[in-house]
Amino acid sequence: MNMNKKMTYEVILETSYRLFAEHGFEKTSMSMIAKELGISKPALYYHFASKEALIDVLFEEICRGIDFSRFFDKRQYTKGNFEQRFIEDGLNMIGHQDQNYLQIMNQYHALGYREPKYMRMLIEILEGYTKGFAELLQHGVDLGVLPEQDVMVRAEMLTMIMDGMDNFMSYGFECRYEDIWKVTVLSLIKGDRVP
């Protein structure tokens, strides 16, 4: 793919992301996207055969963008920085979620109830977070900064907390998300026993 096609592809995805977030999947047409891009509808169809194909590709890109490894890199965690790094990486992820992201994920969640492929992908993301948190927590155990107990339960809890915060943010619910994350991480480090 030459540079112009790649740039056009990326610009199409960025513009579609914004328009889908602002107007929803149903109300955003390929004509509207083409007009916003300043290209013809056939030019848009050259890159994406249908609006559904565009929605699919956009979701794949969003999923890559929120992959666990983008926010938490186990190799960067040491005995001396584990707690602070865990807090900072989680806060970075929370801060990554802009209003467009929250709006569009609401639509993908709704779509997941009608289209099993979206639900499967959403579940895969959550499973990736649980696995990633389990590996990170085990790394903390190996470093001697976390207690050797309930690693999988704690990983599942972290995934639920992250997913819950994501959902609450998408509803516009005002919470002290940063403080919730800090308290959660500090309780893990202290080794509060999970019943």
Rank of each mutant, 00 (worst) to 15 (best):
A134I: 01
D98Y: 02
I123N: 06
E115D: 15
K117E: 13
P147A: 12
H139E: 06
N100Y: 15
G140N: 05
H109K: 12
E148L: 04
F133K: 04
E115Y: 02
M121R: 14
P116E: 10
P116S: 15
L126E: 08
R120D: 13
Q103I: 00
E135Q: 15
A134M: 04
G95D: 11
G140V: 05
F133S: 14
K117Y: 03
M93K: 14
T130W: 02
R120N: 11
H96P: 03
E148T: 00
G132D: 12
R120W: 10
E148D: 13
D98T: 00
G140P: 01
H109L: 09
H139L: 11
G144F: 10
E115C: 03
L136N: 13
G95T: 07
Q97R: 08
L126K: 04
I104S: 04
I125H: 06
L137A: 11
E115R: 12
D98V: 00
L102M: 08
M121D: 06
Q138Y: 10
Q138L: 13
F133W: 09
I94H: 09
E135A: 06
H139F: 03
R114C: 04
P147E: 11
Q107D: 13
I104R: 04
D142V: 04
H96F: 15
L111P: 00
L143N: 10
I123F: 10
I125Y: 10
I123L: 09
I104G: 01
L137K: 03
L136Q: 07
L143P: 06
G140M: 08
M105I: 02
G112M: 10
I104P: 05
I94C: 04
F133I: 06
E148Y: 09
Y108T: 00
G112K: 01
E127Q: 12
E124H: 07
Q107L: 09
I123K: 12
Y101S: 02
G95Y: 15
E127W: 01
Y118H: 09
L102K: 02
G140H: 09
M105R: 03
L136S: 07
M119G: 05
G140D: 13
H109D: 12
V145Y: 07
Q97W: 14
N106L: 08
A134L: 03
Y129Q: 08
M119T: 03
K131V: 09
V141H: 13
V145G: 09
I125F: 02
G128I: 06
Q107H: 03
G128P: 13
T130M: 10
Q138M: 11
H109Y: 12
G132M: 06
E135W: 02
L136D: 08
Q97G: 01
P147R: 14
K117V: 10
I94F: 05
M105C: 04
P116K: 15
M121Y: 02
L143C: 06
N100H: 07
Q138A: 08
G128W: 08
Y113G: 15
E124D: 15
V145N: 13
F133P: 07
A110R: 13
G95L: 06
L122D: 05
Y118G: 00
N106S: 08
I104K: 03
D142Q: 07
N92Q: 09
R120A: 07
N106V: 00
M121A: 10
I104M: 01
Y129C: 02
N100T: 03
D98M: 00
G144A: 08
I125M: 05
Q97H: 11
N106K: 09
A134S: 11
Y101T: 01
M105A: 01
L143D: 06
